[in-house]
Amino acid sequence: MQTTMASGASAEALAVVAMVREVQDHRGPEIPLLLLNCLERLTGAGEADVVIRRPRGRRPTAQLDGRTIYLSVSHSAQMAAATASYRPAGIDIERVREVRNVDGVRAHITGFLPRHADATREPDAHAEVLRAWTRYEATVKALGVGRALVPSEFAGNAEPDITFRGLNLPLNLNTATLHTHRRNQHDSYLLSVAARPTSNVVIHHDSDLGYTPANHERHTS
């Protein structure tokens, strides 16, 4: 199943292919395979044609016919998510859970909390903080800076724009909720993708995953 999170030009260069799936062991081969599947969907190229580079402390990339493909990957509990795109993008997924000292953590990420009256609100403070955290992580991954930019430096951010020290960043954020039912256990996950505003973000996910696009940004489809 695929879900379009953002509309825009459909040219290959604007495509952001995202995939999310359940994994048994995030240290095993499932996550590299997920990245390869993203690459395949984006480029049509097989495993043998691409070289993936994962330099320590820097974002992973792939090279295909002299072009750089940007990769981003995230995992939480039993789910993993990844993107492949010709322009930088970032993805983050978090299982909805209790956040300790939620008010203290919340104070660090105010820049990614909903501000507008019509903004999407999560059902409780924990999910709201987790949602904000996925948005922060997706943003710094898209910028390729890791956590060199700390959450509080984004203070003053007003959705849908992402601002850093007063400057609007050329990124849009899309956030969705996923629900899983496995072995009589229900889990929810929050998933954010940060990409250039004109990007066409398509998420591919298993059809048995409950999917709620919880966006309120300008590019909601």
Partner: peptide, 27 residues
Amino acid sequence: VDSLMALEVMVVLERRYAVKLDEKRLA
């Protein structure tokens, strides 16, 4: 431990020891 958990640890330490930790050193 994921990145958010590290922030949770930082906040817990700040409260327990009444000290301000530099967010830039979270990593």
